[in-house]
Amino acid sequence: MSSAVFSTSAPQGRPFAFDNENGAEVCPQPSQPERFAEARPPQRVIDAALPGAFFPGVMTDSRLASVTLASRLAVRPAPEMVSSGIAAMDELTGGLPRGCLTEICGPASSGRSTLMLSALAAATRRGEFCAVVDASDALDPQSVAAAGIELDRLLWVRCGENSHHAEYRVEQLLRVTDLLLESGGFGMIALDLGDLPPQTARRIPLTTWFRFRRAVEHTSTVLLAVERQSIAGSCSSLLIKLGSLKINMSGNRACNTGFQLSPTHAQLLSGIEITAELVRSRMERKPVGSAEIAFASKTAWAG
């Protein structure tokens, strides 16, 4: 960057950052008043590096000619965000980014599948085609229908049977995902690794996730990974952690830890309250850190 030329961290007597090794064109050291010029606003500093400015020696360097000025760098557009189908979640994350990898992690019964199906339902309602690559063959068709997913628009890939080794199923999942990403045209591809043991899921090389991220980049596909623990590292643009469970029962008040050992027969599971935490977000102007929300899901029969 051109602003680095004026770095005051360069020691006295040493060439500046873009000076060549031969020292054929040594940049003049700024005098004391000029060194104070660094305190000026950055725009003025950049202007100083434009042709015809004070340091002709710097601009005659052929390597500098190919350096793009920071002011002229193309700003990478922020990814388009789509609804996850849950208003509270959209408020927290700003939605799910297209062309990026989003991780949803949490223990069993933390609402991962609920969130995944909700996002898929929202995508199919938008008229998009979606795919679920199911490593554990755990998708419940009744839940899919109850979530409001248009079944015609959902491709379900059931990797392996549960009798197979988890490694074998993971391998199938990765190969199928590669094929689907290569095929293109899907609005959302959800990878369900939720039932895999964390030690197996962690064996997926980081390069695989990087490849997926590159494959999905510049496309309109939302790549969603549901897992117990975050495994994609920095390859994921959004990391949502789902947490504690709170059961809503009809006829009773919501209870968290104070379960009754002998409930009445009139108990009915009417929903689950889910706590979501935004662990990481690469989206602009989004909070990074533990921003938390809670939202409730209801069972299909709760009405």
Binding site: S113, T114, R126, L139, N162
Partner: peptide, 20 residues
């Protein structure tokens, strides 16, 4: 899809994960 028509927001339905 209905263009221009806002998509109605449905409340999340608790999903079941099946053991097969």
């Amino acid at each position: 899809p209905k263009i221009g028509k806002p998509l109605e927001e449905k409340s999340a339905v608790a999903a079941l994960r099946i053991f097969r």
